[in-house]
């Protein structure tokens, strides 16, 4: 059992938790994730390790309530415990001093970008961050991101905060303005990552994306997380989660993500009914 030390709602439907997992906290590096199972009947699902405190023995996860499993997790309180947490899984981000790095996080994708940004900064890169959400109240980690970035830009779809529009427009603006960019890291919904790659492709700017397929074990034994990168099949849990965005078959990824859409909806509905009735 993995005790929840701290829980905070940081935006509507977005929860931050600090979970006691000393071995993982000690070992994990930017870009890695854990797989959780909330209780005995629960499914296994991945969440990025947004931060860790080796001394306190805790890891931080930040997640959006998307369906039944994340709702179950969000229902746990401080002092309660998660049945299973396994990690750190996946390869750590390749951190290198390249010059100017732009880190783009969309929605809850800001959480996985946050540790990457810090590692990129620590090694000596100049880092510009672009974070975005549908509207101001959905934006997470703005202060934390600002504290570690040389420059932070904000976009909201509705213009309630920062630039009105998409982060790709900001990126395009930077490129048009002649700004030198050595590396782009983008994490967020598939359409966002795909759009960023289309913007950087013509200039050949290296672009890293973090993929979020459906996972089961997270150790390479099921193949459920496979994606196609450069025409080659890769298992995201062991070969990723980060890949060269210009090589990723996003179309395949989004189709595979919909495999269980109907069943997931049914499961979430049944869960809501039970809660409603109880």
């Amino acid at each position: 059992m993995f005790a929840i030390k701290k829980k905070r709602l940081i935006a509507p439907k977005v929860v931050l938790m600090e979970v006691l997992a000393p071995k993982i906290a000690r070992k994990r590096r930017a870009g890695q994730f854990v797989i959780l199972r909330v209780n005995d009947t629960g499914e296994r699902f991945p969440l990025t390790i947004a931060d860790s405190d080796a001394e306190a023995g805790t890891i931080t996860i930040i997640f959006q309530i998307a369906g039944k499993s994340t709702a179950l997790l969000a229902a746990l309180n401080e002092g309660e415990a998660i049945q299973d947490v396994v990690g750190p899984l996946g390869r750590p981000t390749h951190i290198e001093k390249v010059g100017h790095v732009v880190c783009i996080g969309g929605g809850v994708g800001i959480a996985p970008v946050y540790p990457i940004l810090r590692a990129m900064k620590e090694i000596g890169n100049r880092v510009t961050s672009i974070i975005s959400a549908r509207s101001k109240d959905l934006l997470i980690l703005e202060e934390e991101m600002r504290a570690h970035s040389d420059d932070l830009k904000v976009a909201t779809d509705d213009g309630s905060h920062g630039f009105k529009g998409f982060p790709t427009q900001i990126l395009q603006g930077m490129m048009n303005g002649g700004e030198r960019i050595d590396l782009v890291v983008a994490v967020g919904p598939v359409p966002l990552m795909r759009a960023v790659c289309e913007v950087t492709r013509p200039r050949g700017i290296p672009t890293v994306v973090s993929l979020n397929p459906i996972m089961v074990d997270g150790t390479g034994m099921c193949g459920g997380c496979r994606v196609s990168v450069g025409g080659k099949t890769q298992f995201v849990c062991v070969d990723g989660p980060e890949f060269d965005g210009h090589q990723v078959d996003f179309d395949l990824l989004s189709k595979r993500l919909r495999t269980y859409a109907d069943l997931e909806r049914a499961s979430a509905e049944a869960h809501k009914c039970k809660i409603g009735a109880g």
């Binding site: 009947t41 499914e43 296994r44 499993s69 269980y260 499961s267």
Partner: peptide
């Protein structure tokens, strides 16, 4: 392992 044959009592789905 995940008891998908008892979905939705267990949360892991499997294609029907």
């Amino acid at each position: 392992l995940m008891k998908a044959y008892r979905f939705p009592d267990f949360d892991t789905p499997i294609i029907r």
